[in-house]
Amino acid sequence: MNTSNIKGVVFFDLDGTLLNDKSKIEPEVAEATEKLKKNNILPVICTGRSPHEIIHTQEMTNIDTVITLNGSLVKNNSEIIYQRIIPTDLCKNVIEMADSFEEAVAMYNNQTIRRTNLDTNAIIQTHKFIAEPIPEVDSTFYQDNDINMMVIYSIDKENEYNVKFSSSLKFYKTGTFSIDCVMKEESKKNGIINLLKNLNLTNVPTYAFGDGPNDIEMLNYVDHSVVMGNARKDIFQYGEYITTKNTNHGIVNGLKHYNLI
């Protein structure tokens, strides 16, 4: 998409937002993203998922620009335009703490995902919910590979990790059984800032659709924020507009509200 003609940018969270309750793209959503492009509005996937987890979604929606791993990896037409790496020693320390709680950890980068060797109910339930296979085991993967994000498969230890690593890392409770971990400065908001700067789109109107805690900074940053009707009740306060549920035409209704399609 030719960025010189862009009249606006719309950022979409995936789970609970652009995707339905079975982690699939509805035909009407695919049609809506195509209409956005025809109207010179740039659609952008903005997610905690990794690039290789969203390939099918990109194909279904024809979206080429993505902010992944909670802002730690930004790509436009397959080109990495921004990324942040978690230092090896921090990866090691997080994994050691997770081991002490008997919790598994997954390590993400642009190419793949690997995990520590604990088989827990939390890891099974998390990947069942997002309809993705459980990652292969390689507990030392972080030693020889760049890591943009980690996921700790934990039910109730978010506070303990935040206290331990408050000076360097940020933790998002993104699911019943999972906590996303990125460098402290990273967020979907920071990913958006880097994307707009790199594509010279800092002067066009921005919109965002989201439903969860890791969407808050994004919703607060853009010009117009849309919260899904299925969001947690405490997220509603961050929406300029509350649309219907993701399973009840929420994306289409939100885009129509702002006359984007």
Score class of each variant (00 low, 15 high):
Ile130Met: 01
Ala131Thr: 15
Ala131Gly: 14
Ala131Pro: 03
Glu132Phe: 09
Ile134Leu: 03
Ile134Tyr: 00
Val137Asp: 06
Val137Arg: 08
Ser139Lys: 13
Tyr142Ile: 04
Gln143Cys: 11
Asn145Gly: 10
Asn145Met: 05
Ile147Met: 02
Ile147Asn: 00
Met149Ile: 04
Met149Gly: 04
Met150Val: 01
Tyr153Val: 03
Ser154Val: 01
Asp156Pro: 11
Asp156Phe: 10
Lys157Ser: 08
Asn159Ile: 10
Val163Gly: 04
Val163Asn: 13
Lys164Ser: 09
Lys164Arg: 12
Phe171Lys: 07
Lys173Gly: 02
Thr174Leu: 05
Thr174Arg: 06
Gly175Ser: 12
Cys181Asn: 06
Val182Glu: 10
Glu185Phe: 05
Glu186Tyr: 02
Ser187Glu: 08
Lys188Asp: 04
Lys188Val: 00
Lys189Ile: 05
Lys189Gly: 03
Gly191Phe: 00
Ile192Asn: 05
Ile193Asp: 15
Leu195Val: 02
Lys197Pro: 11
Lys197Met: 10
Asn198Pro: 11
Leu199Met: 12
Leu199Val: 09
Leu199Asn: 05
Leu199Phe: 01
Asn200Leu: 09
Leu201Val: 09
Asn203Tyr: 12
Val204Tyr: 10
Pro205Phe: 09
Tyr207Gln: 09
Tyr207Ala: 04
Ala208Lys: 06
Phe209Gln: 03
Phe209Val: 01
Gly212Tyr: 12
Gly212Asp: 11
Asp215Pro: 02
Ile216Pro: 05
Ile216Phe: 06
Glu217Cys: 06
Met218Pro: 00
Leu219Met: 10
Asn220Gly: 13
Tyr221Asn: 07
Asp223Pro: 02
Asp223Met: 08
Asp223Tyr: 09
